[in-house]
Each structure stands twice: as structure tokens, then as C-alpha cells.
Design a protein around this nucleic acid. Sequence first.
DNA 1: ATGTAC
Length: 487
Amino acid sequence: MTTLTYREVKIEQIDEVTWVIPPVRGMRVPGKIYASRKMMESIIKEDESIQQVMNVATLPGIQKYSIAMPDIHWGYGFPIGGVAATDVEDGVISPGGVGYDINCGVRLARTNLTYESVQSRLEKLIQTLFQNVPTGVGAHGALRKLSRQEIKRVLRDGAAWAVEYGYGRPEDLERTEEQGRLQSADPDAVSQRAIERGQDQVGTLGSGNHFLEVQVVQEVYDQAAAQALGLFQGQIVVMIHCGSRGLGHQVCEDYLRVLADATRTYGIVLPDKQLACAPIQSREGRRYLGAMAAAANFAWANRQVIMGLARKSFMDALGISEKELGFRLVYDVCHNIAKVEEHRIDGTVKKVCVHRKGATRAFPPGHPLTPAVYRAVGQPVLVPGDMGRYSFVAVGTERAMEETFGSTCHGAGRVKSRHQALKEGKGKDLIGEMRKQGVIVQARGRRTVAEEMPYAYKDVSEVVDVMHKAGISKKVVRLKPVGVIKG
DNA sequence: ATGTAC
């Protein structure tokens, strides 16, 4: 074991994949980072994210540790790949701890199909998906434009709204984190402008790192868990990664302003303005939590509708029945959210507000919030990688409850900036290169493809392996993309 | 992430 120095602070390695930052300069708790030594060295060099872990540790009411996953990188105020739990009674809530894309998340659907059986018709399938699921920054028009009243129902009911309209089955809800609906949602706390932005965007994918991928189960690490999740080697599955679109973005923007004022009102002293926050029990704090929950519900409805569009695309493109297809939700996780949960701290169960920003809930086998169908194996964890290599499915553990407020990593993390990736991708036939590697890509813009190419990302397997070694989440399967639609 | 700047 060893130490590394960051801005004159000695970061101590406590085991192969865990590092602790001592509480210095106003930190109320230590920092804890999961990473290999190699990763840790590059994290220290790369950006401000270690400083952000330390900044988060100064927040009023923070419990145990300011935590970061191996896919940590710089974000607005809080690092992306960070977890912070604050005491519900005397702690704060911060929009920076959730991020702009409220309930950005991932959903995985399984099918009865094998790669072998669809390989020759894959081109048509990807084209059909691209036609049916609107992609791109301003993507709109998957459904008729919804009235303001209807959007309020989306904000209140989440995924259940979409199921009611035929974009899924009631059992999908049992396989969605929080059953696809936070009851604390307060649609009246969402601005008129945010609602207007959402009216035409339910069922749209968006841009950036958002995607819909047709993938193949490439390797099974845990046969029993894979079977419980309905997964098998060679199987075709669909991964959907997107969030709350313009509506969630507007909610974040609106409340950053509100909470910047609240920070002053309540006399909270912060090392960085971007950590703007308010006591959870304050009027401003409660209102943000209500609006955030409403935006989270919008994101669940969005992913549920997209899944419905994908199901229909499969049936149409392949000319098969619903029964032959066997399209079923495996699970849907949030990557960007703050939620009130119960956790054991110093031997007593306490209500805390867990901010997960670029982190995944990873509840263990037996936990009451792990769906009954997965109670024996643990809550599924979905970790997208890059569009060329692979993504992972894992499950949560008891260790996660003890050490990370039931949380694990969420993705690969960038290794190159968007700008740098764009520069290097210029003049290259990136889509052609992907095709040679067996991945059909359909995208709205060439720029997004360049920004999102595999070389722009770290190897997600290294990230997942760190969390596996730490015992926080357990690998179940690896998924290889064969078709991608993007913004 | 985002009607990529009110």
C-alpha cells in the first residue's frame, strides 16, 4: 500500500482499489475513491475531479465519505462518478449533485432471438429503429404533441403513464428502479418553460452519449445470475441510454438559480459556487426535490416509450410475432438522481438523501427494494461502455450497502475531450471503420459520431473490474454492440 | 446533457 500526493494532500491507498483522502481544509468527512493505482495517477493528473470530491465533503450534513467511482471525471460542482449522502434532518440538497440530465439512465430489454438468427436482417432492423426513434439534440415528434395537462400526468406517473398508453406491460414497472415513479414528484414545481420543452419530446433519444444499441450477450461471468435475469450467451438484447431531455435540463437550470439564492439565505459557506444547495427541509430544497422527481418521472416515461417503439421496430423489421420476439424489460436504472433512502450509519438506520451523479444504485440480494424477481441475485446494474467495445450487466452487493450507500460505477468515462475526439475523427470514415468491426451505426450527425467514437472513452471493463474487486458490484455478463442509433 | 448563448 502506498500514498499519492494531490495539492499537498496525502491520499492513502487502503487496499488494491480503494483510496482515502483525509479530511482537510473544511472537509467534514474523508473522501473515498475506488480506482487502481494506474487509474488514480491519471485521475490526479487529468482534471479537477479530486478537488471536487474534497469540495463535496464540506457540504452540511454529509455522512461517512464523499465517494467517487473509477469512472470519475470533472462535472458541474460535483464530479461525475460521485456519490454523497446527506442527513435528511440537517443536511442539504444540491442540483449539482444530480446534474443537468436528471434521471439520465439505462434500460435493458432481452429478446428470445440469437445473433445468428438476425445477423442477415440487422441492417434493416437498425434502419427501422432509426426511423421510429427520433434522435438528435432537438429530437421531437415520437408521439403527438402532448397537452400541458398530459405532461403533468407524465410528471406525476412516470413509466406507468407510458404503460397505460401501450408502450410496455405492467410487469415492466416492477423491473424499473422505484417502479418508474417517484411519488415525491411535484409537477407544480416544474416551470411552464420546462413543461413546454417536454411536450414534444416524450419518446426521443437526444444526443451526446445517449444511444439505443442492439447488443449480443458475449460472455457470461455468473451463470446463475444471468439465468435469473433472463440472459444467455449469443442472445440479442437492447440497451437504451437517455434521460429527461430539454425538460430536465430546464428544471436544473431553473433551480440552480433558486438554490444559489438559498445558499445565501441560509448562510451556507461553500468552496465552489457550483455546489449551490439548500437544507433538505427548507422550502427551496423541498421544491427542488419535487421538481427533480417530476423530471425523473419524465425520463422513465421517455425510456418506457422508446422501449415500446423498439419492440414494434423489431416486430416490423423482422416480421415476427410478439411471442417469437419475447421482448422483456430486464431492468431500468438511474445514473443521475438524488433520493431519500435508509442506510445504516454507525450501527443505526438513518434517512439520508443519496446524491448519485454518474453512479448506479446497487442494492444487494434480499433488499426490500430489489425487485422480488431478482431478490436472490441482487439488483441489476447496467454499465454502458463505448459503442465499439462492450457494456456490462452486474448486480449489487451487501458490501455496497456498507461502503457506498448501495452504489457503484455507471460507465467508461471519457479519456479524450469532445473537442479532441472531434479533431482526431476529422476526415476519417468512422462509420465505415465501425462496420468493419461488426457494428452498424446510424446517426443524425457526423459530429456526434466523432465525439463518441470508442477511442474517446476509457475501457469500461477496467472500471467494472475495480468495482468487482472492491466487492461493490458483481459482474454478470458482457454485451457487445452490433447496431447503434445515435443523435 | 442542452431549442450547445437570453
